[in-house]
């Protein structure tokens, strides 16, 4: 009961308090950089609804598509590399090098190679966000309890069942930890990818507001991006808690 109360306080009361403080402390602000919250919210309302279809939808679509590709590729490659020692040894140096490149540094090349398309943005997100999931999955797959593999051998577990009922669940705590970092990468990359060579998206809205020195719009875009990120990570925690319910302590 008290835990639930604390949770409600955290989720509702604290943000509400902060917004209220922001509202009143910024009310009479004449600063160009920190306009009153009221002005920002008015800009936000102005942006709706066509801003949602023009900017928010493409951003969310690119983000989810890029993230889905990153996760699918990272988990499948990671499971194979983590289970086959020779492959991991062969690929490990390349992987270590690739993941050391800041993903945003890839953007100029992708723009040249693929043009200012959403395929390009999805590719940047996928290539930039794949590494944490890949590396973490390799660790997870490598650490699978050998006794469980013996069990699948003794009981002649079919290949698909072994993958989906034994190997993936066994690696899932680390896979999910990697996916969480990949999600953060993807959220950064969707904004960055829309700040260059773009005509739509939340990132574009923020950068064009900056170019027109439209601070209320700039803040409005930033708030929307923050809310989107918050929503996605909450959703992630929700799914993770369900998937790892068997572990108990989280």
């Amino acid at each position: 009961m008290t835990r639930r109360l604390i949770l409600v306080a955290e989720l509702v009361a604290l943000p509400f308090l902060l917004v209220t403080v922001w509202w009143f402390s910024s009310a009479g602000s004449s600063s160009v950089f920190f306009p009153p919250l009221q002005t920002i919210l008015a800009a936000l309302v102005d942006w709706f609804p066509e801003g949602v279809t023009r900017d928010v939808v493409p951003s969310v679509v690119n983000l989810l598509a890029g993230y889905a590709i990153a996760v699918t590729a990272g988990v499948s490659a990671g499971m194979v590399l983590g289970r086959v020692r020779a492959l991991e040894d062969a690929f490990s140096p390349i992987i270590q090098f690739m993941r050391s490149i800041p993903p945003a540094a890839l953007l100029p090349f992708f723009i040249l190679a693929m043009g200012p398309t959403s395929t390009m943005r999805i590719s940047v997100i996928a290539v930039g966000a794949v590494w944490p999931t890949l590396l973490s999955t390799i660790d997870g797959a490598r650490g699978i309890e050998p006794a469980l593999l013996d069990v699948t051998k003794i009981y002649k577990t079919s290949r698909l069942r072994r993958i989906f009922k034994v190997l993936l669940p066994a690696a899932s705590p680390l896979i999910l930890a990697g996916m969480k970092t990949s999600l953060a990468f993807a959220i950064i990359l969707v904004v960055v990818s829309e700040m260059l060579a773009s005509t739509a998206g939340i990132g574009y809205f923020i950068i064009s507001s900056q170019q027109y020195f439209n601070l209320p719009d700039l803040w409005a875009g930033t708030i929307v991006m923050g809310l989107l990120g918050y929503l996605l990570s909450e959703l992630f925690f929700f799914v993770e808690r369900r998937l790892l319910a068997w572990k108990g302590e989280i």
Partner: peptide
């Protein structure tokens, strides 16, 4: 042939409930 392993606690599938663990070999 079936085996009860020495480290039995590690040979159970921790993400499956007891009934599902017992059912696991029967799925084949």
């Amino acid at each position: 042939l079936a085996v009860v392993f020495q480290d039995y606690s590690r040979s159970l599938l921790p993400w499956m409930k007891v009934a599902a663990n017992v059912e696991f070999p029967l799925l084949e």
